[in-house]
Simulated assay, not measured.
Amino acid sequence: MRINYRQSSFCSTGACVQVAVLDNGDVSLRDSKDLSVAPHTYTPQEWVAFTAGVKNGEFDLVPGALLDR
Rank of each mutant, 00 (worst) to 15 (best):
A52I: 13
V19G: 07
S8G: 04
S28V: 09
A49L: 14
G64C: 04
N4Q: 15
L61E: 11
S9A: 02
G64D: 13
G53A: 13
S9Q: 07
V27N: 05
L67P: 02
L66S: 02
A38R: 15
S12F: 12
F10S: 14
C11D: 15
A20G: 03
F50K: 02
Y42I: 02
M1H: 13
P39H: 08
H40W: 12
A20R: 07
Q18K: 06
G25F: 00
N24Q: 07
V37L: 15
L22A: 00
A49Q: 10
A65H: 09
R6W: 01
L67C: 10
T43A: 02
F59H: 01
Q18S: 03
T51N: 08
L22Y: 01
P39C: 10
T51H: 01
R6P: 05
F50C: 01
C16K: 00
T43W: 03
R69W: 11
D60C: 05
D60W: 05
K33L: 02
A49G: 09
D68Q: 13
F10G: 12
D23A: 13
E46F: 00
D23E: 14
V37K: 15
L61N: 11
N24L: 03
V62E: 15
D23V: 13
A38W: 08
R69S: 15
P44A: 06
E46M: 06
I3C: 09
R69D: 12
A38L: 15
V27Y: 04
S8T: 07
C16N: 03
N56C: 03
T41P: 04
F59W: 06
P39Y: 04
L22C: 04
E46Y: 02
L61M: 13
Q45W: 08
S36R: 14
E46P: 00
G57D: 05
G14D: 10
T13I: 08
L67S: 11
Y5N: 00
M1R: 13
N4Y: 06
C16A: 00
A38F: 08
Q45D: 12
S32L: 06
A65F: 09
A65M: 11
S36F: 08
S8Q: 03
D31C: 06
L22D: 03
S8R: 00
V54G: 00
S8D: 06
L67F: 15
T51K: 04
L29A: 07
V21K: 11
S12P: 08
R2N: 15
T41V: 15
K33C: 04
E58K: 13
D68V: 11
S32A: 13
L35R: 15
V17L: 14
G57W: 02
D34G: 01
F10N: 12
P44H: 06
E46D: 12
V48Y: 10
S28K: 06
V37G: 05
N56T: 11
L35F: 01
G53W: 09
R6M: 04
K33E: 03
L61D: 09
T13M: 01
V54W: 06
K55L: 12
G25K: 02
G25P: 00
H40K: 09
S36V: 11
V19D: 02
L35V: 14
A65S: 11
G25N: 05
D23G: 11
V17F: 10
S32V: 06
G14A: 08
D23F: 12
Q18V: 07
D26S: 05
C11F: 07
D34C: 10
D31M: 02
